[in-house]
Design a protein around this nucleic acid. Structure first.
Lengths: 150, 150
DNA sequence: TCGATATCGATGCATTTGCATCTATGTAGA
DNA sequence: TCTACATAGATGCAAATGCATCGATATCGA
């Protein structure tokens, strides 16, 4: 059966899509202004930095970042070409590889964060109170699949 | 001054970006499954349908949809090639044109909405109560630039 | 053990996006 | 009016994305 959305649901959808696009664009612009790589690079470098020396398999990056498989494959190729990550063979699976962030990759991530973090502070942190931040993230968590538990 | 973001602000940012990407992707998938055009087409057809017989200038579409100028230019070319919109010369400005949705364009929009609206109902309407929907849209409105007034 | 099937990651090709710039028309100031 | 500048929209070219598929290895069931 075709249950159509309420006007309130439509409004949430519209704002979600526009606000996220607008904020993402602003953050990207700030990075460009600093001659830094795009946000997608940050996401990957961030996950790899958190993973530490053990690194991550490409498919783990796909799970964590939601990028498409071919997208990760090519993004990693670019990151490797720039010396930000290294690809290591993995002992017990001849198909796979381990991706590890290099020192240069960590440094790039750090410089990106100086700009990116400032964008987040300005675009989100400065607009809502701590209580409101908690509410938004709880409600957005409910829209996620699977729903967030915190 | 510009400080670094609080953990709560970071969490809101992260969820905003991930949830919006995830939901957008699902809505796109639903359209593809129905052999329908992508969401971007809907946005433009929707604005044009609301504008009525008077149509809209491309620069007005840019303001309303947040697409880049070159993006609108090419999107309109594709829509015209598919017979969904028509381009009319504008009397008092030789540089410009008026874009008007055709009957076929209206019909396509209608068919897209049957699928798109259902996605919104499932992905948003079904996940939050009416009160919660109101809260999210109010809070997201504060993140917009300029902030929403309602 | 072998054959079928699934998973990991890469890639050829078409489409789309991003950037810079172009053409054409409009506007404003000397 | 004539010149400089601004605005509307298109486009060439490079980069990124999406789609389908491939090659290689792993796994599972008979």
């Amino acid at each position: 059966m075709t249950e159509m959305p309420s006007p309130d649901a439509i409004k949430v959808w519209a704002r979600l899509m526009r606000v996220s696009r607008q904020l993402m664009e602003r953050a990207e612009d700030a990075l460009k202004e600093g001659s830094l790589p795009p946000l997608a690079w940050y996401d990957v470098l961030h996950e790899l930095a958190e993973a530490g020396e053990g690194g991550l398999r490409p498919f783990q990056l796909i799970e964590r970042t939601l990028f498409a498989q071919y997208n990760i494959s090519r993004l990693l190729a670019r990151l490797e070409a720039d010396g930000l990550v290294e690809k290591l063979p993995v002992a017990d699976d001849g198909r796979g590889q381990i991706i590890r962030v290099t020192a240069k990759g960590r440094e790039t991530r750090r410089r990106m964060w100086a700009v990116y973090g400032r964008s987040i502070a300005e675009l989100v942190g400065a607009k809502l109170s701590p209580d409101e931040l908690g509410m938004v993230s709880a409600l957005l968590g409910r829209l996620r699949h699977p729903p967030a538990t915190d």
